[in-house]
Simulated assay, not measured.
Amino acid sequence: MSTSFDSILVLSFGGPDGPDDVRPFLENVTRGRGVPPERLDEVAEHYLHFGGVSPINRLNLDIIDHLRAGLDAAGIDLPVYFGNRNWHPMIEDTVSAMYDDERRHALVFPTSAWGGYSGCAQYHEDIRRALDALSDKHGQPGTDLMDLRKLPHYWDRPEMTAACADAITAARDRLPADRRGDARLVFTAHSIPSAADKAAGPPAQGGHLYSRQVAAASERAAAAAGFAAHDLVWQSRSGPPQIPWLEPDICDHLETLAAQNLDPVIVCPIGFVSDHLEVVWDLDTEAVEVAERLDLPMERAGTVGVDPRFTDMIVSLISAQLQGLDTDAAGMGCTENGARCAVGCCVSQRPSRPAA
Rank of each mutant, 00 (worst) to 15 (best):
E102S: 13
A217Y: 08
D20C: 06
G18E: 01
S218Q: 01
R174S: 13
H88F: 15
R149I: 00
L131I: 11
E247L: 06
G32W: 03
T143P: 00
C341D: 14
A74C: 01
R353S: 10
L67P: 05
H253L: 01
P264V: 06
E102V: 02
A183D: 09
D147T: 15
R237Y: 08
P240E: 12
R33Q: 14
A222C: 07
L9M: 10
Y81H: 12
L232Q: 08
E92L: 03
H276E: 09
A221H: 10
W155T: 02
S118R: 06
G32S: 09
A106Q: 06
A216D: 12
P37M: 07
E219P: 06
V214E: 02
E219A: 10
V280R: 14
L317R: 03
A225S: 09
V288M: 08
G302W: 05
Y123F: 15
G207Y: 02
G239K: 07
D326H: 11
I8N: 05
V273C: 11
L277D: 06
R172A: 15
E92D: 11
G70N: 02
L246M: 05
A215Y: 02
A162H: 09
H190Y: 10
I127M: 09
S2Y: 02
Y123K: 03
A113E: 05
P203R: 10
L294H: 08
E286V: 15
R85A: 13
G15P: 15
R23W: 08
P193I: 01
I192Y: 09
A183Y: 05
L277V: 14
M1H: 15
P79V: 14
E336D: 13
A330C: 03
A199C: 04
E278L: 04
C251I: 12
G331P: 13
R300K: 14
T30P: 01
P354V: 07
P248D: 08
D307E: 14
I314D: 06
A204N: 07
G52N: 11
Q349W: 01
F13Q: 11
W114P: 07
L131N: 01
D178F: 02
E45M: 15
D284N: 15
S135D: 09
T169Y: 01
I64H: 07
T188W: 08
V280L: 12
I64T: 05
